[in-house]
Design a protein around this nucleic acid. Structure first.
Length: 149
DNA sequence: GGTGAGCGG
C-alpha cells in the first residue's frame, strides 16, 4: 500500500504554506501589497515633530559652529552638533540641531531644508527619538543592549 | 583619503 506515502507527502508541503496556521496574516509569506495605498513609507516615515532636528547632506567642511550659526537665524539653537568620526575625526556629513521650542524647530526646517550650505544641499527634518540610556548600559554593550563581544 | 545615504556624544 503506497497510499500512506502519498498522503504523507502533501502533509509536509502543507507545513510550507501554513507555517503558523492562520489568525495572523491571511496571505502567504510573500510580499503583501498595500491595499489602501495611502502612505508608501518605504523606510523613512519622517519622525514626529520635536525640538531635535536631523540635518543631512552637510559638507565635509561644515562644522558645528557653522551649523549652529546657520540654524540660529530661525530660532534659538540650544544644541548643535556635527557628527564626526571618533577615530579619523572627519565629518560624517550630517548633524543634529536642537531648538528651544518645536515652533522654532519647524521654522528651522522650513528655512534650512533644501538650502545650500558650503556648496551642498542640506536636508533638515525632525530627528528620531533616541533610545533612553538604560541602567545597564556599559562599555561592552551598545545602547540597544547588544553584546559587542 | 574623504566616497554622499543616513540618525549621534
Amino acid at each position: 500500500m503506497a497510499t500512506r506515502a502519498a498522503v504523507a507527502a502533501p502533509r509536509v508541503l502543507r507545513r510550507f504554506f501554513c507555517t503558523n496556521s492562520a489568525s495572523s496574516s491571511p496571505s502567504f509569506p510573500f510580499i503583501p501589497p498595500p491595499p489602501t495605498g495611502a502612505a508608501p513609507a518605504p523606510t523613512r516615515p519622517t519622525a514626529e515633530p520635536n525640538t531635535n532636528l536631523f540635518v543631512s547632506g552637510l559638507s565635509k567642511r561644515t562644522t558645528t559652529e557653522k551649523l549652529r550659526e546657520e540654524f540660529s537665524k530661525f530660532g534659538v539653537v540650544t544644541h548643535a552638533r556635527v557628527v564626526t568620526d571618533r577615530v579619523s575625526g572627519y565629518s560624517k556629513g550630517f548633524g543634529f540641531v536642537q531648538y528651544s521650542t518645536i515652533e522654532e524647530a519647524q521654522k528651522g526646517i522650513e528655512g534650512m531644508d533644501g538650502k545650500f550650505l558650503d556648496g551642498w544641499v542640506i536636508f533638515a527634518e525632525y530627528a528620531r527619538p533616541r533610545p533612553p540610556p538604560g541602567q545597564f548600559v556599559n562599555n561592552n554593550t551598545t545602547q540597544y543592549g547588544r553584546q559587542l563581544s
